[in-house]
Design a protein around this nucleic acid. Sequence first.
DNA 1: AGTTCCCGCCAATGT
DNA 2: ACATTGGCGGGAACT
Length: 434
Amino acid sequence: MAAAAPAVASPSSAGAEDPPLAVAQAQPPAPSAPYLPPRLVVDGAGGGGGFGVVGQPCRQHAYSRKQKSLGLLCTNFVALYDRADVESVGLDDAARRLGVERRRIYDIVNVLESIGILVRRAKNRYTWIGFSGVPAALKELKERASREMSGSMSPSLDETSAFNVSDDDDDDKLDDADGDTESEKLSQSIDNPSDKPDAPRCKLRSDHRKEKSLGLLTQNFVKLFLTMEVETISLDEAARLLLGEGHAESNMRTKVRRLYDIANVLSSLNLIEKTQQADSRKPAFRWLGKAKRNEETTITAALPPTKKTLPSKRAFGTDLTNIDMKRSKLDSTTENKAKLTRDGGSILKTLQRQLGQGSRSDFVYGPFHPAGARKQELDDHTVQERERKSIREWENLASSFCPQYQNQALNDLFGHYAEAWKSWYLDLTREQAP
DNA sequence: AGTTCCCGCCAATGT
DNA sequence: ACATTGGCGGGAACT
C-alpha cells in the first residue's frame, strides 16, 4: 500500500463552505500534476552549510528530513490556521493542505491541544483557540504541578515513586468556562502489570494508552520547566524525570524519541529553545515562555519584543506544504517543487496588508532554528551565561539573521499573544505575591 | 559512531 | 465492521 501521495479523495475538495484558510491557495497552474502541493516552506536547510542565500532550494535536493520535520509542519500548521476567522480545524483538511499524512497531524494537534492552542471538538474536528490560550493553559499546568508537588516530595529529588511510566498528572483540561469537550482526565494509577486482585473497580484498565500519550507527555515536560529552577533541561534528564527511576533503557529510548518530537514542536512555537547545557556541552532545551518564579514585574513577553528588523523585503516561507517525498527516493519530479517555491508571498502579502503592513509588529516571531544563525552564534561566543541572555540572543539573532524562512504570518499573533502573557503575569504575580 | 527523529505498521478506541 | 486515533520503535538522515 504505498500511500505515496495523500489521497486526494476528498469529497469537499474545494470546500463549499470551507473555512477561509485558502489564503494561500493559488491554483497552481498545473492541471496535469497529480496532487501538486500548494506550497512548501523550503527551510534553509542547505545541510552542510550551503544555505547561503535565501529561499532557493539548492539545486535538486535529495531527501532532507528537515523539510519533513514536525517543527516545520507545526509552523506551517499555525501559519495556516492562526487567523481571526478560523475557528474550526479539520484533520483531513489539515493533512491535505499541508501535504502530509494524517498520522502527522495527530502529533501536532496533540501537543497543541495540551498547550491550549486547540481543543478537540469532535471526531476529526478541533476548535482553534490560538496562542491566546497558552497562558491559561500554562498557568493551569503550573498550578497543578506545584500542587501535586507540595504533597510528599523532597526537594530536588525525584517525585512519584511510580515504577512505571506513570507519573503525576491530575490533568483537567484547559480551563475555559462553559462545558466544552469532555473534560476527560483521569488520574490513572497504573501499577504492576498483573492487575490488582481485589481492586473494587477503579481500575481504569487499558488506559495505559493515555498515560503515554503525547499530550500528557508534553504537559509533563512543560511542567518540568515551570517548576524546576534549572532553566535548561536535556531530553535525557527529562525522560529520566518523567519516567520513574525504573529505568528501562529501551523505555528511555522511546521516551526520548517522543520528547524529541515534542521539543520540536514546542520549539517551533517558540516556547522553548535548543541550547547547550551550561557547563557540559550537552544539548538541552531552555524555556522561553518566561513563567518561572517571580521575575521582574515587567511583562517581558516570552519573546523579546524589541527589534523591529524585518527588512521590509524578503518574504519567504510562505509555503504551507511539506513536500511529499519518500525517505530515500530520488524522484526526478523533484524539480517541480522549485517552481512551487516561488509565488510565495500570497499569505504574507495579505497578512502584511491586514497588519498595517510595514513593520508594525516588532519582531519576527518565528525565527525558528535559523539554521546558520544560531549555530554560528553558539560557536562564536560560547554560550555560557546560564541565566537570562536569551533576550540578547534574540536581538542578536534578529539583526544578523538570515531571514530564510521567517514566517511573518506569525507576526500578527504576537499582538494578542503578548497581551495574553501580560495578563497572565499580572495574574500570577498578584496571586503569589500579595 | 552517536544523535536526532521521520515513517508508517498496526493495535487500541470510537462510531 | 469500518473509521479514528495514536503508541512505538526500526532505521535512515544528520551531526
